[in-house]
Design a protein around this nucleic acid. Structure first.
Lengths: 236, 236
DNA sequence: ACACCAAAACTTGTATACAAGTCAACATCG
DNA sequence: CGATGTTGACTTGTATACAAGTTTTGGTGT
């Protein structure tokens, strides 16, 4: 799940494995609720309220709020209130830009000199994606898509790069939750993935770049559509 | 200065201009001291101590600590202590990777369709860099270099992209403070800048990419050298 | 009924007190 | 003299109380 991965991004503890502590639980819970639109953009959310319902004090809640605000998922208005951050054309464009930049460099690295020990996992992922499409299981496909792009970072020898990709991906995914994903769309994404893997394993960097740009660009018309149909969830 | 720019990165307030509040002052102060190596890697730093010397309570200090830890400048070891984060080969490699990825996409955008209103500022910056070299003013050149790369982001229409570049640049700059910058090195950097601007203004994207990769790669031998001469500041 | 003002009920920001864990110094025993 | 156990002085994590500001609500006067 996205939250558990992203948690490492803002982790301040050592690399020793530790059970989820107070702020982490609150962070994960709120993160999931925001990402899944259980908490809609603009929803007011109070430190005191979350503290009560979570059983913790306001202090851990504040820490979780800060981390979520740094991810542009919460908007803290001092002395006023804290709300789930509305969508923003500018923030989304930035997130798209950053993700594309990093992932393009990732696949360049993969095409040039990849970690071949990840090859099997990539092929396994493709097979699992095929199965998810056969079952019309959109949720499973979404998770597999997430893992697929993480595997690409691992193959590039830059697993940490996925933290940034995930953070910016979340920004866009939250928006796209408003659009139903059809099996046809899944098929398109899967075809991109297979063609991308083919190009990467044969070292065709320019072709891989073209495929990835088109792959990431598939979201643009969806974003535009949602902007017109759900303008109420956007800022201003 | 880097700190004031970076502050916006972690800003949680609205976009209204506000005077520096408690945590921001502490953050800026610590940020500068860490970046300039006034606080060396491994230095123990206590919330209580900083709170006393700054006149604030522990709470604002904690917030500043968290932000600095998220930038990989502090390492908070729960219940043990907080130290200025030692250098890490892995973190530096990641920072180099991320910065290169973003800046390469930036210059591709500039070469493709730039904001021409920034052209004059770029040329002014180049002239100022020339003057700094003539005066052998390394500090001034460093600041101009910082501004130059920010201008590139503006020219690409993605000023926010510079926040990430700056954050990762700081990670490397802190290390390179250990190496004295010669006027010869400045001249090399300046030559890169001029050739980069030439390529960008004539829309030669591939050439610009090559120049930028070489430009960013100039730090690699310096990093390696410092790793051997100052291994004590590295983790493990 | 409507405009306006005041007070109460919110919000986040800060300070202080306490809890839990780690580490180091030191006394004590073999 | 050395190893060891215990106590104390640190550290960060958490809870609570208070301060400052905003928004809403209700009453009052016109």
């Amino acid at each position: 799940m996205p939250a558990t991965e992203l948690k490492d991004d803002a982790m301040t503890t050592t690399d020793t494995v530790e059970q989820a502590t107070g702020p982490d639980q609150i962070f994960d819970d709120l993160y999931n609720r925001i990402i899944t639109l259980d908490l809609l953009p603009g929803t007011k959310i109070s430190e005191t309220e979350v503290a009560r319902s979570s059983g913790y004090s306001r202090q851990p809640v504040r820490e979780a709020f800060t981390r979520l605000a740094n991810l542009n998922l919460l908007l803290i208005r001092p002395k006023r209130a804290t709300i789930v951050r509305p969508f923003s054309r500018d923030l989304i464009a930035n997130a798209r830009f950053i993700r594309a930049a990093i992932e393009l460099e990732v696949i360049r690295q993969v095409a040039d000199a990849r970690d071949t020990s990840v090859d099997a996992k990539l092929k396994n992922s493709l097979k699992a994606q095929r199965d998810a499409i056969a079952d019309a299981d959109t949720a499973a496909f979404h998770d597999l898509d997430y893992d697929f792009h993480r595997l690409l970072c691992q193959s590039a020898g830059r697993p940490a790069a996925f933290d940034l990709i995930a953070a910016n991906k979340a920004q866009v995914d939250r928006l796209c939750m408003l659009s139903l994903t059809s099996t046809a769309a899944m098929q398109d994404l899967y075809d991109d993935h297979t063609r991308l893997v083919d190009a990467l394993l044969s070292g065709k960097a320019p072709e891989a770049e073209t495929i990835l740009r088109k792959h990431l660009g598939r979201l643009d018309p969806i974003i535009d559509a949602i902007y017109t149909t759900h303008s109420g969830y956007f800022e201003e």
